[in-house]
């Protein structure tokens, strides 16, 4: 009875675990980036393969403990030390499946990381600091002004140390919200002022550390207009959990107009836009 009970429990737990995935009540938020479809497909494929493996292994485990219990003295187990054939078969089969998955799992990665950002990308410099995001927009001239850590002065709201004497800096804008154009590649130049942070918008299916001392360039294309939550996904200190901001994905015209604004109007406009767009409706 112990064996049967255990078998049944294992099967129930397996069913429960698998169905938690398949009811899809809790699932990825709907994706908004151009690479996400391929990534979601790869995820689905992987989760199906490992789901089948998981289920098969647990059903098998349940089966053997259901079937092969001790039946008292005199009745002995099968005397075998194994089978070379089986060892070879399952080694080869799993190797093929695993390496296959690994190779397939590279394609989205390669598309994001092995190519430079396209020439027409919209560039934003990101400077993270403990518990706050700063996005540095180049303004109308498309050239970012010089920055210098020695000029950083939080009380003067110069969070990134922008050198106001640099002519290129005149039209630059720094804001805690990232606004990007829809359907056009975006290149982020990621920096950190202090410790490691991580740029994470679940809908983008994209994540990258911001490492102090490094300029990390990454690119993606957001293809759905809207307002999304931006989170920090690398432990950066006590208020890591509330290092929050928003990403606005705007229609080209609206975005262009926004980028033409000077700092104070930009700020006001962002506030309007944040009110104008709603967060996606999450399942409840």
């Amino acid at each position: 009875p112990m064996g049967r009970a255990l078998a049944v429990i294992i099967w129930i737990l397996t069913l429960g675990s698998v169905s938690l995935f398949f009811v899809k009540k809790w699932w990825f938020p709907e994706a908004i980036s151009s690479h996400a479809a391929a990534l979601d497909r790869q995820f689905l494929l992987t989760i199906i393969v490992v789901g089948i493996a998981f289920t098969a292994a647990q059903i098998g485990l349940g089966y053997v403990i259901w079937k092969f219990r001790d039946r008292g003295p005199g009745d002995r187990a099968v005397y075998t030390h194994g089978s070379n054939r089986l060892e070879v078969i399952w080694t080869v089969v799993t190797a093929v499946i695993f390496i296959g998955l690994a190779v397939m799992g590279q394609s989205v990665w390669a598309s994001l990381h092995f190519n430079k950002a396209p020439a027409d990308s919209f560039q934003v410099e990101v400077v993270a600091q403990q518990f706050q995001w700063n996005f540095h927009y180049a303004g109308k001239d498309g050239i970012s002004g010089r920055t210098d850590p020695n000029l950083i002065d939080d009380s003067a709201l110069n969070f990134i140390g922008l050198d106001q004497t640099d002519p290129n800096a005149k039209d630059d804008v720094v804001h805690s919200v990232i606004a990007v154009p829809v359907g056009r590649p975006v290149e982020l130049i990621l920096r950190s002022r202090d410790v490691i942070h991580n740029f994470w918008v679940p809908q983008l299916r994209f994540k990258q550390d911001l490492v102090p001392g490094m300029n990390i360039r990454v690119h993606f294309t957001a293809n759905r207009v809207g307002k999304y939550e931006l989170a920090c996904a690398e432990l950066c200190g006590q208020f890591h959990y509330r290092m929050k901001s928003f990403m606005l994905v705007l229609p080209a015209a609206e975005h262009q107009a926004l980028m033409a604004l000077p700092q104070d109007q930009f700020q006001a406009r962002i506030t309007e836009l944040l009110a104008k767009y709603e967060l996606p409706v999450y399942q409840q």
């Binding site: 005397y79 075998t80 030390h81 194994g82 089978s83 070379n84 060892e87 070879v88 080694t91």
Partner: peptide, 9 residues
């Protein structure tokens, strides 16, 4: 993976 079935008696 050189295991063999030893069905010894």
């Amino acid at each position: 993976m050189a295991t063999t079935v030893t069905d010894s008696r």
